[in-house]
Each structure stands twice: as C-alpha cells, then as structure tokens.
Amino acid sequence: MADSPQEIQKAVRKILWIGAILIVFTVITVALSYVELPSHSWNLIVGMIVATFKAALVALVFMHLNHEAKLIYKILAFTTVFALAIFLLIYFTSLDPLEFARF
C-alpha cells in the first residue's frame, strides 16, 4: 500500500496515466466496432479482448490488485472459476452435438 507522501504522489501520476489510457482504448473500442472484420464473431472477440484489457487495468491499478494480500487472490480465484463455470457450462448445454438444447 502506498502510504508515504512520495509514494502517494507517484500513485497519483500513475492513476492519471491509466485514466488517459482507458479513454484512448474506449475510443479504439468504438472505432473497431465499425470496422468489418471477416465475420462479426471476430469483432466480438477483438472487442472483448480490448474490454478485458481495460478491465484488467482498472482491476490491477485502480483496485490495487497488482499488490494485494494473498487471501484476496484466493477468494477471487475461486470466484473466477465459478463464474467461468456458469458461463461455459451453460453455453455448452446450448452447443450439444445432438442440438436438443435449442428450443
């Protein structure tokens, strides 16, 4: 945790930088969405990669996840696994080879 005044000053500069980067990438996201990639899935994938990058910046820097107590990482790791489970498993049930799932 940045606690001494100098460290806080440094942190402030970093925050402003990251804020600027986020804005730039927001513009990039919007622009990219108007570019026609080979298929719309590509647009989705690229868009999600950019969004994930931005989200990572927010989480790592703004929410100081780049240096946090180990316990927080553990909690978030499990949360991520379960969140992925609910994404992927539900998604897979709609992709079964027998195509039963699609009503």
Binding site: T29, S33, H40, G47, A51, A55, V58
Partner: peptide, 11 residues
C-alpha cells in the same frame, strides 16, 4: 460498464 458498453451498444 467496460463490458456492458461494447456488448450492448457496439457489438
């Protein structure tokens, strides 16, 4: 919101 914006408005 970083995810909502592209998913709902753009893609």
């Amino acid at each position: 919101w970083i995810f909502l914006f592209p998913l709902l408005y753009l893609l």
